[in-house]
Amino acid sequence: MSKLLNQFRSFYVRNYPDDMETQIDYFAVFGGLGWDVDTTKPISYLIEELILQNFSTLNEKIEELTLNESNNKRLLRALAIGDRRIFSAFKRAGLNNGNGGAALNFLQEKGLISIEYSREEPAQSLNPKKKLKRSIARHRISHKVLFTQPFIRFWFYFIAPHTKDILEKNYENLFKDFALKQNSYTSLVYEELSELLLNYHIRDSQILSSGSYWDANIEIDILTITDDEKIYVGECKWTNHQVNKKELHKIQEKCEKLEITPTQIVLFSKRGFSKELTNLSGKDLALYSSSDFAALVKNISKEELLEEFI
């Protein structure tokens, strides 16, 4: 069982939110922290009550985890807000392959991050005597990084940039930032959980490869391949409106560019789907909304609570 799934279940058993949308929203902020969270209270209220009022304690723990080393913290910040690609995170953090690589290795060994390896194939010319175009030849395949605890990513996404204001008890800019970016921030956790839900539903198959897919031109949220040569392609939308048929067309176009024929296209939506799209669901198209994530927390108990952040 993955660490993220353990944390998701632990959060649910500890706090029993009213619905799965609330579970996902609050888990994206507090997941891995290991504290009781009253999910009947507004999330912004809880950020102030649990995080900002305990800033000194939490910051001390963060400094301990990162050895209070600037390169480590700069890289975590860059990974939290960027596209998760290692090379672009080095650039954003002002690091090179040497000191950036050292920071990356330390954070991985510390268990704060994990590497998601690219499945992109190196470009090759159709004519072995002909060189690749410069733009293609210069493209570097880059692996990506995932945070092992949602709370650590939340800290470096929203809290660390506002440290000076927080020390002065000025929270206005932080909450403006959070209100503007909350859905975008939560999308990555939702994407990771969506992959877990898809793999739960195809658990009778042997999964050969699963995760996001990216190359120089295409990004797909979930691409899962099983040993019986079935291909599942998924897209995730954590937005406040229903997903419509246009999203289906987009993912079909991506599959055509990749020259793959999916066994099933799988769409995940925070707020459900249009009637037109719902009518198309079946063997070739699976649709999952927030309530379906209840499958991930079935038949668990307090005994499954794990050691977490604090």
Rank of each mutant, 00 (worst) to 15 (best):
A78K: 01
Y171V: 02
S212R: 06
F90I: 14
W35Y: 09
I47P: 03
M1Q: 06
Q53A: 07
V266C: 06
N96P: 03
K298D: 08
T22F: 10
L112D: 00
N217Q: 11
Q242R: 12
Q182T: 07
I220W: 02
L208Y: 05
S44W: 07
K110I: 00
G211Y: 06
N71Y: 05
S269T: 06
V13I: 15
L33M: 14
G32P: 15
H241T: 00
K275N: 13
N199C: 09
C255V: 06
L174H: 01
S269H: 14
L50G: 12
E303V: 00
N71Q: 10
L67V: 13
Q7A: 09
K164N: 10
K257L: 12
F309L: 08
A294V: 12
D38C: 13
S205K: 13
R138N: 14
L112Q: 01
F30W: 13
E21W: 07
L167R: 12
N240D: 07
L167I: 03
I24S: 02
L33N: 10
K91Y: 08
D215C: 15
V29T: 01
D36R: 12
E21S: 15
Y232V: 00
E235C: 13
R153P: 01
A80W: 10
T239M: 11
N59W: 04
S289W: 04
L4N: 00
K144V: 01
K41S: 08
D204A: 11
T148N: 12
F156S: 09
E259G: 08
R77C: 13
N173T: 14
L285G: 02
F55A: 06
F55V: 03
N59L: 07
K250W: 07
K131W: 06
V29S: 00
I166K: 01
S44T: 15
G272A: 09
C236D: 05
R84Y: 09
N96D: 09
F158E: 11
T22D: 14
D19M: 15
N199P: 05
W214N: 07
G82F: 01
E48M: 09
E229A: 10
W214Y: 07
F27L: 07
V243I: 07
G234E: 00
Y45T: 08
H143C: 07
D221M: 03
S135A: 08
Q149A: 03
T148C: 11
I251C: 00
N71M: 09
I260A: 00
Y190M: 07
V189A: 08
L280G: 14
Q252R: 05
L95D: 09
G94E: 12
S274R: 05
S184Y: 01
L285K: 03
L67W: 09
F309V: 03
A286P: 04
L197C: 00
K73D: 10
